[in-house]
Nucleic acid binder design. Structure first.
Lengths: 227, 227
DNA sequence: CTTTAAAAAACTGTCGACAGTCGGCAGTCG
DNA sequence: CGACTGCCGACTGTCGACAGTTTTTTAAAG
């Protein structure tokens, strides 16, 4: 239920303007149409999107709460620019959440969860072969959302979803480089193996390794492309 | 830095209406002036507060992102009502965050942090003697915020702050009962002792115990007062 | 007296407009 | 030639209003 962040609309174009604007802004930001630190003009956005400023303002507040924008009073909204230490903090929090989640999941690992996760890794691997970087990221995030979901704490999942917007922000910094498909595959299969083993230490090791790899990848990428 | 919620303005009473309304709503909710599940009318609120609906709407979106309100499209905003499992989830996430934080803190436990925490426990104990329930809660939260702060991950602190609004919501459910001052004192001193010992396992045990007590207290309180 | 349906009231979503404020630019003074 | 001051444009914060929808009230039928 709470899993479908990638909304199943498309058909019914009857969604709040606020959410539509929020989606547009989110996409525009993670696709670098707006650069980090750039200022967003309310009037120009409302002109471009053909809506009034009220929905734009409310959407901006939404993105602010998600950490994609920051507001300076009387100045407007700016695209969030993550520095090195904030980036470390994001991955440290991710580690915190996922360590907890995988422990909880190990305690209640059902065949259903096992099946769903395995299936999602397949999907992810398939996506990793392709060229669509956005889809690869989304399928990756979806795997982790599934993990959090089956851990049985919806609030934990929400915390991860909040964080995931910032994770996307991190990843946009390094769109140039590509993680090798086999790296992604093995990294996720290790998680499944650890869960299958049923040993909490193994799960912890696997998730530590997994997130460590992702963090190093981003940190390295940022170092190369130069902030 | 991120600790000073009470910003250095004070002179110029120039604060966004949005924030003023948000503060008002927050207070009104945790003081049970609006009951859980109750619907908030935008027009009535704007009438009562003497402002237009725009700031009210933006403030409501803010509180929604903090988990104090939920919005139903075309229906409006409702005060969040936590059920038993959501309540469990909140405390489980709190455990997740604080376990991680106290580990990080143990790795970098400076005399400055030690001093600040000790001082805050003193303040908390003093507050626990008094009758002001709200202040006791705020001083308690402030202690934990300090812990998270000195853990050195501002993003982790933000996650806790997000959660803290829901914690207040939990606690409002049980305003009737009071935790004994000595219980609060010993519970926090155990945390300090564990940190002083420098042993990670001791820290983990202490935080598990601490949050377990708080959770049981709330769960028990909710069970008694019904809902 | 209960149930259904239609009309009215109230409310949300959205819009355009006005006022106060901020940043930049030109003109002026030292 | 450089620093200060006042003006100008652009923008944010806030407001009142309109349209469509939901809820409530009212009325009629069974």
């Amino acid at each position: 239920m709470a899993l479908s962040t990638a909304a199943p609309r498309a058909f019914i174009q009857q969604q709040n303007l606020v959410e539509q604007v929020a989606d547009y802004l989110t996409q525009a930001i993670i696709q670098q149409h707006f650069l980090p630190g750039e200022r967003l003009s309310e009037v120009q956005l409302s002109r471009d999107l053909g809506v009034s400023r009220a929905p734009v303002r409310e959407a901006a507040r939404l993105l602010e709460s998600r950490g994609l924008l920051i507001s300076k009073p009387r100045r407007g909204f700016f695209v969030r620019a993550l520095n090195a230490v904030e980036l470390e903090d994001v991955f440290d929090l991710r580690l915190c959440l996922e360590r907890h989640a995988i422990q909880r999941l190990a305690e209640r690992y059902t065949p259903e969860a096992q099946c769903a996760l395995k299936q999602q890794v397949e999907v992810l691997c398939e996506a990793a072969e392709g060229n669509d970087g956005t889809r690869r990221i989304e399928e990756d995030l979806q795997f982790h959302r599934l993990m959090l979901h089956y851990a049985g704490n919806e609030r934990l999942l929400r915390a991860f979803n909040d964080l995931s917007h910032e994770l996307r922000l991190c990843i946009t910094l390094i769109t140039k480089t590509h993680e090798a498909p086999e790296t992604i595959a093995t990294s996720h299969f290790k998680l499944l193996d650890a869960l299958d083993s049923g040993r909490p230490e193994a799960c912890r090791e696997a998730i530590d390794y997994h997130i460590g790899v992702a963090r190093d990848f981003v940190v390295k990428g940022v170092g190369e492309t130069g902030e």
